[in-house]
Design a protein around this nucleic acid. Structure first.
Length: 586
RNA sequence: GCCAACGUAGCUCAGUGGUAGAGCAGCUCAUUCGUAAUGAGCAGGUCGUGAGUUCAAUCCUCACCGUUGGCUCCA
C-alpha cells in the first residue's frame, strides 16, 4: 500500500522510470524462468516497452500457450522469493569471455568500445545472471503485477536476414489495479476495432477472392465519398487541379521511373499480346508524363495535380491488416511541380491544409516525423542541405512537435510523415510530404526560367489522408464508429409509431431528401422500441419519431443518438438545423 | 516472406471419428404499440479448398488459401 501511494506521488518522469525499471526487471525474471524450463534457450535482449516488456530467446522451439502458463508460474516463485537484483561491473573483454557461447551477447558486446565497462545483473541469489545495461528494481518482489500476453517469432534486430528468435510479450504494473485498468482498456479498444465496426455498420467487408482488398458497401462508400468531397473543397481553396490517369502502363514507363528496379516486388503485372504491363502502385510517373506533354514555363509553376486514381500494391502476405494495409487503395494523392525556391511555401501551405483537415475529424493525437538523407541517395549534397534546412525550419517555426530521423529519408528526397494511432495505440502513417529530386531527372523535366535558361523543377509528393482506406480505418476507431453528422452514412431515420403514420413519414423523408439529407424511413412492422434500438445500434445521429401528436401538429419528435429528446420541431426547422450542422462539420 | 493461432448458417459462436446445433439477422403470418429487442412459424450449412489415413472424416495427418497477433520502443 505504501508503495502505491508513493507511486502516485512521483512526477510523471519518475513514474515512467519506475515502470521501465519494473518491466525490465520482469524481463529478467521471465528470462530466468525460461532458462529453468528450457535450459538450451539462449538469452538475447529484453527491454521495457510501452505498457510492458518482452524478451527474445534464441535456440529454442516456439513457445506454446501452455508453455507461457508454466513460465508464468515459475516467475511467480521467483517474485515470491523476493531476492535482490545485484549489478556487477566488468571490463568488456572479461564480459566477452563470460558470454562466449552466446553469439547474440557477443554481437552486443562487440558493438561496445573495448575500453568501456559493462554490467551484469543477477537475482535469485546469483542463480541467474544476464548481461544488461541496467535499470532494475531493488528486489524481485517489487514487481507488483505482471502477466505474460503472447509469444511470437521475431528476427534478431528486426532484420529478416537474421535468425528468427522466440519472443515473449508481457505486461507489468505498479499495482494490480493499474494492470486491471490497462487490460480493461485493451478490451475496450478491441470493441472499437474498425473491422468489427465495418461489419456491424455495414460499411465494408473482405473476401478471400480478393485478398486484402475491401468491398465497400453503399454506407461505406458514402463515408469515403464524403472524405473525397471534403478534400476537393480544400483543393478548391488551396488551388489544386484534379487529373485522371490510366490504370495500367507498359513496363517501359516503370523502367523509366525506376519502379521496375526498386518496387517491382510490390507490383502486379499483366501480359497482354506478348507485351508486359504493370498496374500502377503510384500516380507519379503518369503525372510526370503529363508535365512533359507540354513545354513548361516558370509562369505556370507551381502546378498542383491531384489524382484519386486506384492503386494496387502487392503487399507481402504477412503484413496486410483490415483497412489499414490493403492491396487495392485510393489516395488523396497530388504532385506539385515547382521551382526549388518554391518548396518552402508549398510545404508550408500543405501542412496548414493538413492540420485544418485533421482538426475537422477531431484528430489531436497525430505526430510528425522528419526523415533525413539516407546513405544511398540521388541529388547533390547542396540540394539535400538546402531542402533539409527548409523542412527543419518549417517544422520548428510551426510549433508542431516532431522527431527527426537521420538516414530514414527516401533515396529521392527528404520527407515529413504524419502518423495517427489506432484504437490499440499502433501508429499508422497517413499524411506525407516528400521531396523528389529523382523523378524530374528520370523524366528529364524542365521549365523555361525567367532568364530563358532551362531549369529542372522539383516534384513534391503529398497526401493528407494517405490511403483513404487506412484513414477510414483509423477514423472509425477514433470515433468508435460514431460518425459526425456530415460523415454519417444515414443521417436520420424517420420512425412511424404505427402504420397509420407511414404516409406522413414518407412525406417527411421526401422533404429531407430534397434538401440533400441522407434519411431513411423505417416503415417495417417492428414496434417503435425496436426501430429506435436498431437506429441506436447503427449509430444514426437523429431519430425522428412520428405518432398521432406529430401528425396532428405537423411536427417531429427528435431524438439524438445520445438519448436526448429535443423539443418538437417542424420539418423545416429540422432540415435547417441539420443543414447547419452538416455545413459546420460539427 | 518468417513464427504462432484460428477458419462450422449472412453475423456471433456451441459441437462430435458414425455426413451438424443456438442466438441474432432473413422470410411468412399475427400484432399497430410513445423513445434500446412483440409473438408464432418457416427457411438457411459440399463444417475454407484439395489430398491422405479409416468401413466411415467437419473432427486425425499433410499441402494450399485466407484471417488474426508478432517480426530493433536494441546489453
Amino acid at each position: 500500500m505504501a508503495d502505491r501511494v508513493k507511486f502516485k506521488d512521483l512526477s510523471p518522469e519518475e513514474q515512467q522510470d519506475h515502470r521501465d525499471r519494473m518491466r525490465h526487471s520482469a524481463a529478467h525474471v521471465l528470462a530466468e524462468a525460461v532458462t529453468k524450463i528450457f535450459p538450451d534457450a539462449q538469452l538475447t535482449i529484453g527491454p521495457p516497452i510501452e505498457d510492458g516488456f518482452y524478451y527474445d530467446f534464441a535456440n529454442t522451439e516456439p513457445f506454446t500457450p501452455d508453455d507461457l502458463m508454466k513460465i508464468e508460474l515459475e516467475m511467480r516463485d521467483s517474485i515470491r522469493a523476493n531476492t535482490e537484483f545485484v549489478e556487477r561491473e566488468t571490463s568488456r573483454d572479461e564480459a566477452l569471455d563470460i558470454v562466449i557461447d552466446n553469439p547474440y551477447k557477443v554481437e552486443i558486446l562487440e558493438g561496445i568500445p573495448a575500453d568501456e565497462r559493462v554490467t551484469f545483473c543477477s537475482h535469485s541469489e546469483g542463480a541467474f545472471e544476464d548481461l544488461c545495461r541496467g535499470g532494475h528494481m531493488t528486489r524481485t518482489g517489487d514487481i507488483k503485477a505482471y502477466k505474460l500476453l503472447s509469444a511470437a517469432g521475431a528476427y534478431w534486430r528486426g532484420d529478416e536476414e537474421n535468425a528468427m528468435l522466440q519472443r515473449i510479450y508481457g505486461t507489468a504494473w505498479e499495482s494490480r489495479d493499474a494492470q486491471k485498468t490497462y487490460l480493461k482498456k485493451i478490451e475496450e479498444a478491441e470493441k472499437r476495432d474498425h473491422r468489427k465496426l465495418g461489419r456491424a455498420l455495414d460499411l465494408f467487408f473482405f473476401d478471400p477472392i480478393a485478398p486484402a482488398s475491401p468491398f465497400f458497401m453503399p454506407k461505406g462508400t458514402v463515408v469515403l465519398n464524403s472524405l473525397i468531397t471534403y478534400v476537393k473543397e480544400l483543393y478548391e481553396k488551396y488551388d489544386y487541379d484534379e487529373v485522371m490517369t490510366p490504370q495500367i502502363f507498359n513496363t517501359d514507363l516503370w523502367e523509366k521511373s525506376g519502379h521496375l528496379q526498386a518496387y517491382s516486388e510490390n507490383m502486379f503485372f499483366i501480359d497482354v499480346d506478348e507485351r508486359q504491363f504493370g498496374v500502377k502502385p503510384m500516380n507519379c510517373p503518369a503525372h510526370a508524363m503529363m508535365y512533359q506533354s507540354n513545354s513548361r514555363s516558370y509562369r505556370e509553376l507551381p502546378l498542383r495535380w491531384a489524382d484519386f486514381g486506384r492503386l494496387h500494391r502487392n503487399e507481402r502476405s504477412g503484413v496486410t491488416a483490415g483497412l489499414t494495409r490493403v492491396r487495392s487503395l485510393v489516395q488523396d494523392d497530388a504532385h506539385i511541380f515547382c521551382t526549388f525556391e518554391q518548396i518552402g511555401q508549398e510545404i508550408s501551405s500543405f501542412l496548414k491544409m493538413l492540420n485544418e483537415a485533421y482538426a475537422a475529424f477531431g484528430f489531436d493525437n497525430y505526430r510528425f516525423e522528419l526523415s533525413l538523407r539516407p546513405d544511398k541517395r540521388v541529388g547533390s549534397d547542396e540540394m539535400w542541405d538546402k531542402a533539409e534546412v527548409v523542412l527543419t525550419e518549417l517544422l520548428d517555426s510551426s510549433g508542431m512537435e516532431y522527431t527527426a530521423e537521420a538516414g530514414e529519408g527516401a533515396f529521392y528526397g527528404p520527407k515529413i510523415d504524419v502518423f495517427i494511432p489506432d484504437a490499440l495505440g499502433r501508429d499508422w502513417q497517413c499524411g506525407t510530404v516528400q521531396l523528389d529530386f529523382s523523378l524530374p531527372e528520370r523524366f528529364d523535366l524542365e521549365y523555361a526560367a525567367e532568364d530563358g535558361s532551362r531549369q529542372r523543377p522539383v516534384v513534391v509528393h503529398r497526401a493528407m489522408y494517405g490511403s483513404l482506406e487506412r484513414f477510414l480505418g483509423v477514423l472509425i476507431e477514433h470515433l468508435s464508429g460514431v460518425f459526425p453528422l456530415w460523415l454519417a452514412p444515414v443521417q436520420a431515420v424517420v420512425v412511424p409509431i404505427a402504420d397509420r403514420h407511414n404516409d406522413f413519414c414518407h412525406e417527411v423523408g421526401v422533404k429531407f431528401k430534397a434538401a440533400g439529407i441522407r434519411i431513411k424511413v423505417d416503415d417495417s412492422n417492428d414496434r417503435m422500441n425496436a426501430k429506435i434500438r436498431q437506429a441506436q445500434l447503427q449509430k444514426i445521429p437523429y431519430m425522428l419519431v412520428v405518432g398521432d401528436r406529430e401528425v396532428e401538429a405537423g411536427t417531429l419528435a427528435v431524438r439524438t443518438r445520445t438519448g436526448e429528446n429535443l423539443d418538437p420541431m417542424s420539418v423545416d426547422e429540422a432540415v435547417a438545423k441539420f443543414l447547419e450542422q452538416i455545413a459546420d462539420k460539427s
